[in-house]
C-alpha cells in the first residue's frame, strides 16, 4: 500500500508537485495519469527517495523508502527504460543488482525467463530495442519478488504485443495481492492495464476515476475543467 499525503516537491523555484494526496491500494493495478510535465515522474522519484520533497510524506507500507530495511524485497521500481550501461549484458546488470541486494544471483536467470529475455541474457544492452529494455527494467524490478511495484511509463516503446504482455503480467501481479502503480501519459495504455486511474495535472491531484469505457471523455472533461 502506497500513501502520498500533502506532498510538495520543487526544483529551485519550479514547483513540480503541489500538495498531492492519494493512496494506492493492494490487489489492483492503479494508473497514474497526466499530461507530460504533470509531475508524475517527480512524484514517483520522491516516493523512491531519489528526490527530496519540500513537505508532505510519501510512504510505502507506512515507511519512507529510505527507512525500508530491505527495499529491493519490498518495492520493485522501473524508472527509466534507458538506464543501463550499454556495454554490460542483461545478466551483468541483474547480477550486480543481486549482489548489491544480497539476493542469490540465480534470480537473474529466473527474472530474465519471466520477461522472456533469457535468449538475450548475454548480449550487450546497447544493442537492445526499447521494448527489450522495458522488459529488462521490469525484470530488475521483479528481482526481490516485491509486494509493491512502481512503474514509470513501462509501456513506452512497447509494440502492441508487448503492451498485451505487460498488461497480463501486471494483472497477474495485482491478482497476487501486490500493489501496482503504473504511470503513463497515454490514456489508452492505462485504460487497457489499470483498474482505476489517479489523474494529476500541473502537480495537483485532479481526480480519481474507475476505468470505464468512457474514461477518455471523463478524463478530457476533467483536464479541461481544470484550465
Amino acid at each position: 500500500m502506497i500513501s502520498v499525503t500533502a506532498l510538495t516537491t520543487s526544483f529551485g523555484r519550479v514547483r513540480a508537485v503541489s500538495d498531492l494526496t492519494f493512496d494506492v491500494p493492494a490487489g489492483r493495478v492503479t494508473g497514474f495519469l497526466g499530461p507530460n510535465g504533470a509531475g508524475k515522474t517527480t512524484t514517483l522519484r520522491t516516493l523512491l527517495g531519489l528526490v527530496r520533497q519540500d513537505s508532505g510524506t510519501a510512504l510505502i507500507d507506512g515507511s519512507r523508502y529510505v527507512d525500508l530495511p530491505d527495499p529491493v524485497r519490498t518495492v520493485g521500481a522501473v524508472l527509466e527504460s534507458t538506464a543501463f550501461h550499454p556495454g554490460h549484458s542483461a545478466r551483468v546488470h541483474l547480477e550486480a543488482l543481486c549482489l548489491a541486494a544480497r539476493i542469490p544471483t540465480r534470480r537473474a536467470g529466473e527474472v530474465l525467463d519471466e520477461v522472456s529475455l533469457l535468449d538475450a541474457a548475454d548480449r550487450r544492452v546497447g544493442g537492445f530495442s526499447l521494448g527489450m529494455r522495458q522488459r529488462l527494467a521490469l525484470a530488475s524490478a521483479l528481482l526481490g519478488d516485491p509486494a509493491v511495484l512502481v512503474l514509470d511509463e513501462p509501456a513506452n516503446g512497447l509494440d502492441p504485443e508487448g503492451i498485451h504482455w505487460l498488461r497480463g503480467h501486471l494483472r497477474a501481479l495485482a491478482a497476487d495481492g501486490r500493489t501496482v502503480l503504473v504511470s503513463s501519459h497515454v490514456l489508452t495504455e492505462l485504460s487497457l492495464m489499470a483498474d482505476e486511474v489517479v489523474v494529476i495535472n500541473d502537480g495537483h491531484l485532479l481526480t480519481r476515476l474507475p476505468v470505464t469505457p468512457d474514461l477518455e471523455r471523463v478524463y478530457l472533461d476533467a483536464i479541461r475543467a481544470a484550465r
Binding site: 523512491l48 527517495g49 531519489l50 523508502y65 529510505v66 525500508l68 527495499p71 529491493v72 518495492v75 521500481a77 524508472l79 527509466e80 534507458t82 538506464a83 543501463f84 550501461h85 550499454p86 546488470h93 543488482l97 548489491a100 541486494a101 530488475s140
Partner: peptide, 18 residues
C-alpha cells in the same frame, strides 16, 4: 561518473537508498 552518464545510479540508489 559513468553511473550518472548512463543514469544507472538510479538502480544503485534504489538498492541502497542511504
Amino acid at each position: 561518473a559513468g553511473e550518472y552518464r548512463h543514469r544507472t545510479v538510479t538502480w544503485a540508489y534504489l538498492v541502497t537508498p542511504t
